[in-house]
Structure formats: structure tokens, C-alpha cells
Design a protein around this nucleic acid. Structure first.
Lengths: 163, 163
DNA sequence: TTTTTTCAGTTGCATCTTGAAACCAATCAT
DNA sequence: ATGATTGGTTTCAAGATGCAACTGAAAAAA
């Protein structure tokens, strides 16, 4: 499909490869649909209003990247079921984070439905940067460090965290 | 620029408006650059290898959306400084989450530099979905609920959490 | 002061991607 | 067998992106 230069040389980090997989128009919304329980071509098509050729292309790409599986159903082989893989499911924090940001800063419409903890039916906590010990960190608490220069935690500390 | 239909009618949630602001090619990488301390046109251009016209367009768009500010420097008025606003800074969890995902599932190159907690210089915790009380939640622990059907926590519980 | 360089963009044009609508091939229901 | 449903292709117009060359204002050098 694309002959344009892939992002992959754009720096020493995982972002380019992530964008290669889900950085195109509609991919995020297709993922949101998948998380919301859509599984079939026509469901995505009518829920999102996306053009059929683009939808076919994006689903195919997500499958290629191992984010969705594509399975013809046994009892009606016209129907194809798209499902999130584990790899795909791990995009949930990103999708939710972006959604929360859009809700807070964009058109402030409260989203519905809302993602809740099954156990107590309370909404999840906003997606945030946290320290290893779960303190929330603001921009001012952060800095960048070369991976090679990071010292592992000493054992007592590790044990205390694991407990 | 774009006359194509905006995403805004694609569902009852904040994602479409977020994508409207930062969903285009390069926007995420420009943001990563900003978080990494890039501030000038030529810095972004040479760091990312992006075409100048596209870069100009994206920076303009990010400024329009209140994600970056654009300030000519007082002591050299050729130089324009781009800086993240609070709104822009709050995209950090999303950018980092996507980067972590790409690192874990894509080309498994460990990213450098790494975001660390200034206090102890330890890397931040992976971005995850958490319950209001900071338990980590997996997909199986979650479900969707209509916003209207959610009952607020009772006071004693709230107090305990706040403490 | 004139000349050169730097910075932050524009402009024009070729190429690639997206979108709308019509078309198609299996498969299933009657 | 006939028609409807599902999940796509195909075609073509319109929009977005990329490259290279150009511009204009401001600073630095000569």
C-alpha cells in the first residue's frame, strides 16, 4: 500500500513502530469500536460511518500487525469475526487516555458509556504517569535519563514494593 | 487545510475531538519532540526529517488547538519558540503509553532516553488502567456502564481514599 | 553599511491516500 | 433455483503529503 517513508527511523523509541501499526486515520476509532464490543465489518461500518474500502484496508492492517484476529464464524461462514488479541487489548490505556484528554480539553461532552471497575462499578482513575511506587507524577517531577545510566533498585526496596 | 469530514460525529466520546487535534501524521512525533525539549522549527525539522511545509502546518495546527504556544524570542526575533501548554503537557501519558506499547510489541528496541522520577531516578511505572483506589485492572476486571447509572461513592469511602 | 547567513516559513508540482458509489463473490434462507 | 446478506473490490475524484526551490525578515560578519 504505502510507499511513503515509514516512521521507523524517526528516533530511538517505540513510538514510530506504534504509529506504523495504528497511526493512520480511523485506526483509533476502529480500536475504540473493538473495545466497545464491535466484531463485524458491517458493525464497524455503520457505527463509524467510514468508507468500506478504507475500513477493509484498516482491518486488514490491524490483523497484519497482530492487533486483531480475523475468524470466519463456524455456523455462518459469511460472517467474519474480528477480535482483539492480547497485543491489541494492551492498547486500552492509550485509547482511554486519549479519550479522557479529549473529554477534558476538547468538546467537554461527558463520554458514554464509561469504563468502570466491575467490582464496585466505579469509574476508572484518570490515566496518569506514576512512579514505580504509585505516586502520581507531574511534569515537574520528571526528567529524561539515558537507559544505560539507570541503577536498579536495591533489594530491600524491591521487596517492600512487591509486598 | 482539511476539507474532509471531521471525526466529530463518530460517537459519544472524547476520542474524535482528540484525534481532530493530534490525529494526523507526524503530530505524535512532534509532541514527543516537544516533551524531549525541542522548541524550534529547525530542531523539529532536523530531528524528525519531516518536510518543512508539513511541519509548518502541524505546528500551526497544534498552536490553534492550544497544545503549543508560539512565541518570537525577545533577543532574536527570527527565532520562534514553541512550548507545550498545560493542555499539551497532559498528553504525556498518552504519548508515553503509546511509546511503551510500541517498545513492548513492536521492534523491541529499548527506548532511550527514558522518563524517570526525578526524586529517585527510577523509571516510571508502565501506563495502566487503574481503579479509583489504584488497583491495577485488567480487561477482565472492566466493563462499560452508562454514565447516568453510576452511583457516587459514599462519604466514608471517599474520605478514606483522600487520606 | 553592505553582504552573508540564519530562521521560519511559502509555493509549485508530483505522488500517495482517502472517500463515495457502484460492483462482485460466497454463503445462507426460502 | 432465487433472492438477500456479509464482507469485501474497483473506479475515479478529491484531499493530503513530500520534495525542492524560493522568500522575507532579522541577525551576524565583513
Amino acid at each position: 500500500m504505502g510507499l511513503r517513508e515509514p516512521f521507523d527511523d524517526a528516533g530511538e523509541c517505540g513510538l514510530p513502530s506504534a504509529l506504523e501499526a495504528i497511526g493512520e486515520r480511523w485506526s483509533f476509532l476502529i480500536l475504540r469500536g473493538a473495545f466497545n464490543g464491535l466484531h463485524h465489518f458491517e458493525e464497524f461500518q455503520s457505527a463509524l460511518g467510514i468508507a468500506r474500502n478504507i475500513l477493509a484496508n484498516r482491518l486488514g492492517r490491524l490483523v497484519e500487525h497482530g492487533i486483531l484476529t480475523r475468524t470466519p464464524l463456524a455456523d455462518d461462514r459469511r460472517k467474519i469475526e474480528y477480535r482483539l488479541t492480547e497485543k491489541g487489548a494492551e492498547l486500552l490505556p492509550v485509547v482511554v487516555g486519549l479519550r479522557q484528554w479529549g473529554e477534558r480539553w476538547g468538546s467537554g461532552i461527558p463520554s458514554t458509556p464509561v469504563l468502570v471497575d466491575k467490582r464496585d462499578e466505579q469509574p476508572i482513575r484518570p490515566i496518569r504517569i506514576m512512579a514505580h511506587d504509585k505516586r502520581e507524577l507531574a511534569l515537574a517531577d520528571l526528567c529524561w535519563k539515558q537507559a544505560a545510566d539507570i541503577r536498579p533498585l536495591e533489594e530491600p526496596v524491591r521487596a517492600a514494593i512487591a509486598a
